[in-house]
Each structure stands twice: as structure tokens, then as C-alpha cells.
Design a protein around this nucleic acid. Structure first.
Length: 552
RNA sequence: UGCCUGAUAGUAUAAUGGUAGUACGACGGUUUUUGGUACCGUUUGUCUAGGUUCGAAUCCUGGUCGGGCAACCA
């Protein structure tokens, strides 16, 4: 690794730890998703960070599901998370579940009770909330806080045995009801939920809370660097409190700022709403910032990893411009995607001096960025072709250098043509453009001496195929929907999806494969949608090409 | 109004007491059979007021502003 990139603050910590000989030079991180939703680009940041750190420092990363709340979790999510992490290009050392530790966690809770550092509380959720006080007023102890160790032991065992209904009792840590840090005001450790768990089935009716599961799981696995987002900073003293009292492996928690992307939302709760309310096609709708959505949209793992590398890691609030994500996918696809021609908004061009019924076979490079063009493919030319409606202006604007009446343009890999006249429908809409071609101007054998400024793409009317093309725009109309007044869904972009039922594509595109990106020349990068069939091809636009042409 | 955090170009992110740099964006140019790519150039920044120091983005003090914390969520 000869890169000169400066270290982020977590890398600095790890290098200092390594230099100091901590953990015998071992680096073990973990990616700890709760299986209650699909992973999104924000998780990708965490995944790249955790797995990337381990790779960089010769360590390992566990995939651990934080499955302590059975009513919200599901195997569907477990499966999707595993698929997404793998797709992003990472291998975990071990696949683990917080639920693997339910027995150990229970024993640790008993241990804490024996130390008189935990107690069973019969109060209702509302009572506990009131007794916790407010940030400016200390909490107050209730009568349950002084229960004897013996009584707590019996009560907790009875909780486990299913003697009480949901919500009847909880186990709380006895920390400090007057702590200025609210997280320390006797936080809940266990609650009763008679619910079926996706892994442990009906074996348990009490489940540990995050604070009594996450840190302990880290310690059990001997995670060296437990990296989470900044909202867990106030939990860190509690994390350490449990580790100290229970004399567990001293995992250390470090916090970084989560990713925010503009023009979208980044919370599983909000994304779930979009799915459930039918604003999108599902978790993998190409407009979603989910990993599966980006995949379906045509993003590559490499582009997402590059994005995560470029955004950096720090603690301050941030709002990343989605333009950076787009830059990353363009940068990747430019080097790899084969070029093809497709006309999305067609208008017929008739070449009046081209022999009727004649066809010529022309060739075009697959990718001009690659050595030797990465091979080439052939396509037919004929008297009638489709061109993009926006590539013609009856009366050209200044500095417009595509086709116009009297103006000349090159048809990519074919001839130079000159606009002659237009045929219009009653409503004034152009239905046909008539032009003439310069026979000596054929690509590769151009002896015409004519130099044209513009080159446009085209598809033969006779030989081209049709396909449905879906164009996507940002899902929201405002940069930060969550910070606007009212419901975030009020700011959904009504034009985020535009379906073109019948675009014309060059014949070779019938061989397109799902997962293989293609550039529609001058229009952007596209990929076959999963709903595509041999009879009906469906392409998703991944991203447009950068457009330097600005109309005045 | 308690505690915890953070503040560097438009957006991110470096500089770890010693020339404020990089990327994306924007703008301009060269090349181009993609108005793409590539290449070159320009532009804009240390929240504020004091203090320490030969020297402060960096250390100290006060203020301002942003984010988080009072779920039987994670």
C-alpha cells in the first residue's frame, strides 16, 4: 500500500493501539445490523469502514445480527443483509447473532443481580419514564430499587419462566438515578415479550435490551474496536460500566457520524414507510438508497466502495451531495460499460437520396476507453432511421451543433447528413425529418473533406428493436426531506420515475444481460431490470452522462 | 435550562504549534466521430471575541450555532 491518503481518526486510534501493542496486535471489528429492514448506502459506509479497517490492519470482521427484538425482526432481512454485504465484496469471519448469547447474557444479568447492581422493577413504562426525571431534574428511586438480592433472583427467574405477562416487570441496572447522562438513570436490561423469535423460537419470553446485548456481545467475541455512530456516544459510559462490573473483555467503542445523502432519506423506518405505503416498488426499487435498490439501478460494488472511501470518516454532521455518488458510478462505468445506441424519444429521419431497400453494415467500438476499443459490434444502416427528437432543431439555437434545416451532422459510425425539410402533423408536431447524406463521408473512409461539429446516435427503423426504458430522478424534491415542515412524504418527487414504453435500441442489445452495464451513447448508463424478459426488454437508467451543453 | 458532541471553500475531508491542501461541484480552455472521457487552468474557506506563543485551524477562556440524550427501539 503506497497510497499517501491521510488517516481518518479511527485509523489513527488503531495505529496507536498497534504501536502500543494492545490486544497483541489483533484487530477484530464487527458489522452489527438489526435484521429489521434492508441495508442502505449509510450501512455501506459502516460496512466499508469495519471491513476495510480489518483488511488494512490484517484483522477480521464478524457479521453479527443484533436480534434482540423479535417483534420487529425477520429472516427475510437476515438473508437480504447477508446478500448485500457479500455483493459489496466483503467476507465476514463469522456469522453470529446476539441471540446466540441469550444464555450467557442471562447468566451475566444474574451475576449483576448478585452484585446488587440490578433489580426487578414492577413499574409500568409510564411510571418509569416519570421516575427517570428530566435532563434538568434528577430521577427518583421507587420501592422496587431496594429489593433484596434474593428476591430479585427469584423474580428474574420467574420472568424467564414466563410467570408474568408482557410489560409486567423489567430488569434494570442499578447505576445512578441522578446521573446527568440520562442513559445512566437505571437503564432497562430485560423486558418481557412473549414473542416468537426467528432463531430461538419460543425458548425465551424475556429479551435483553440493546444496552445489555450489544456491548456484551462485543466482549464475548473479543471485538477490539467497536465502531458505531455518534448517537451512541451517551451509551459509552454504560457500555464500559457493564464491562467493568462483569469483568468482561474490554472492547472499546468509537463513534463516527452517519452518512446523510441529499434528496433522499436514510432511516429504515422512513424507507419502510415508502415501501408499505406503495410510494416505491419495494425495498429494491431503483430509486431507493438501499443497497438492493442501487444494485437494481445498476450501481456496481466498486463504485459504492469508492464512494465510501471518498466521503471520509469524521464525527461532524454531514450532508453528502448525491452528485458524488453519481461521479463514482460514472467513473467506474466509463471504463467498463460497452457502448450501444438507443433512441429514447424518437423521430423518424428519412434519407431521401439513399437507395430504397438498401442496407449497409457498419461497426462501432465496444468501448473507446479500452485498449483496441474492447472489440466491436455491427449494426445495420438504412434509408429510414430513428434519431433523438432533441437532436434536431428546425431553427438552430446559437452554438447548437446537431441537426437543423441546412445544417449538417454526423450519424455515429455512419454518414454525414444535411437537414432538408420536415413533415408536420396538424398540431405542428414534427413527424418526419427529411435529409440527404454525403456518400463520401462514410466513417473510416471519409473523403468528403467536410468537418461537422456534432455527432448523433441513431437506430435503423428496419433493424432496431424496441424496449421499455425507465428513467429515474431523485426521490425527493428537497435536499433534506426530514428537516422540512410536515411529513417527509409530502416532499416526494412526483416525477421520480418516467417510463418510456417504446424506445428503439440497436439489435445487439437484445443480448443484454442482467448485471451487465451498458452505455447508451450520449444518454447515460443503463442496465437490464430484473423484470425484463426476452419478449419485453426493460432497461433502467443508472445515471445520465455529464452534460456540458446548457441551453440558453 | 442539565449532560454529551461537533464547527476548515458550495459539499465533504486533510493539515496533529511552523507555507491552509485534496476531491467532488462550478467556471474557462485543449483534445474528441459520445456537448461523454482525458488533460490544463480559475474560483471560493479556518463560527466569533479574547488570551498563551516568535508563530494558532490546532492550545486556553467566554460566547454563537448545529447534532444527540428523558423508547419495555437499535
Amino acid at each position: 500500500m503506497s497510497e499517501e491518503r491521510s488517516l481518518n481518526f479511527i485509523e489513527e486510534i488503531i495505529e496507536a493501539d498497534l504501536a502500543a501493542g494492545k490486544n497483541d496486535g489483533r484487530v477484530l471489528t464487527r458489522f452489527p445490523p438489526e435484521p429489521n429492514g434492508y441495508l442502505h448506502i449509510g450501512h455501506a459506509k459502516s460496512i466499508c469502514l469495519n471491513f476495510g479497517l480489518a483488511q488494512r490492519y490484517g484483522g477480521k470482521t464478524n457479521l453479527r445480527f443484533d436480534d434482540t427484538n423479535p417483534v420487529k425482526e425477520d429472516v427475510e432481512y437476515v438473508d437480504s443483509i447477508k446478500e448485500d454485504v457479500k455483493w459489496l465484496g466483503f467476507d465476514w469471519a463469522e456469522e453470529l447473532y446476539a441471540s446466540d448469547y441469550f444464555d450467557k447474557l442471562y447468566d451475566l444479568a444474574v451475576e449483576l443481580i448478585k452484585q446488587n447492581l440490578a433489580y426487578v422493577d414492577d413499574s409500568t413504562a409510564e411510571e418509569i419514564a416519570v421516575q427517570k426525571g428530566t435532563p434538568t431534574e434528577p430521577g427518583i428511586a421507587n420501592e422496587f430499587r431496594s429489593r433484596s438480592v434474593e428476591e430479585n433472583l427469584v423474580l428474574f427467574a420467574d420472568m424467564k419462566a414466563g410467570k408474568y405477562p408482557d410489560g409486567a416487570k423489567v430488569l434494570r441496572a442499578k447505576v445512578d438515578l441522578a446521573a446527568p447522562n440520562m442513559q445512566l438513570r437505571d437503564p432497562l436490561m430485560y423486558r418481557i415479550k412473549h414473542a416468537h423469535h426467528h432463531r430461538t423460537g419460543d425458548a425465551w419470553c424475556i429479551y435483553p435490551m440493546y444496552d445489555f446485548a450489544h456491548g456484551q456481545s462485543d466482549a464475548i467475541e473479543e471485538i477490539t474496536h467497536s465502531i458505531c455512530t455518534v448517537e451512541f456516544i451517551p451509551h459509552r459510559p454504560l457500555y464500559e460500566w457493564f464491562i467493568e462490573r462483569l469483568q468482561l473483555f474490554p472492547s472499546k467503542q468509537y463513534e463516527f457520524a452517519r452518512l446523510n445523502l441529499n434528496y433522499t432519506v436514510m432511516s429504515k423506518r422512513k424507507l419502510l414507510q415508502l415501501v408499505e405505503d406503495g410510494h416505491v416498488d419495494g425495498w429494491d426499487d431503483p430509486r431507493m438508497p438501499t443497497i438492493s435498490g442501487l444494485r437494481r439501478r445498476g450501481y456496481t460494488p466498486a463504485s459504492i466502495r469508492e464512494f465510501c472511501e471518498r466521503i471520509g470518516v469524521a464525527k461532524r454532521e454531514n450532508m453528502i451531495d448525491v452528485g458524488l455518488l453519481e461521479f463514482c458510478i460514472r467513473e467506474d462505468l466509463n471504463k467498463t460499460a460497452w457502448r450501444r445506441m438507443a433512441v429514447l424519444d424518437p423521430v423518424k429521419l428519412v434519407i431521401t437520396n439513399y437507395e430504397e431497400g438498401k442496407t449497409e453494415l457498419f461497426h462501432g467500438e465496444n468501448n473507446p476507453e479500452a485498449e483496441g476499443g474492447d472489440g466491436s459490434r455491427a449494426f445495420n444502416f438504412g434509408r429510414e432511421i430513428w434519431i433523438e427528437r432533441e437532436d434536431f432543431m428546425e431553427v438552430p439555437a446559437k452554438k447548437y451543433f446537431r441537426l437543423s434545416i441546412g445544417g449538417m451532422v454526423r450519424l455515429k459510425n455512419a454518414y454525414i447528413v444535411k437537414g432538408e425539410s420536415v413533415v408536420k402533423a396538424a398540431d405542428g408536431n414534427i413527424t418526419e425529418i427529411h435529409c440527404t447524406y454525403i456518400p463520401e463521408s462514410q466513417s473510416g473512409n471519409d473523403t468528403s473533406g467536410i468537418n461537422v461539429k456534432g455527432t448523433i446516435h441513431w437506430v435503423s427503423v428496419e433493424h432496431g428493436k424496441t424496449a421499455e426504458v425507465r428513467l429515474y430522478d431523485r426521490l425527493f424534491q428537497v435536499e433534506d426531506p426530514s428537516s422540512e415542515d410536515g411529513d417527509f412524504k409530502d416532499y416526494i418527487n412526483p416525477n421520480s420515475l418516467q417510463v418510456l414504453p417504446a424506445a428503439y435500441i440497436e439489435a445487439d442489445l437484445a443480448n443484454a444481460k442482467i448485471g451487465t452495464p451498458v452505455q447508451f451513447m450520449r444518454k447515460g448508463y443503463f442496465t437490464l431490470d430484473k423484470t425484463s424478459t426476452a419478449d419485453k426488454l426493460v432497461f433502467n437508467r443508472t445515471v445520465t452522462l455529464k452534460d456540458g451543453w446548457v441551453k440558453k
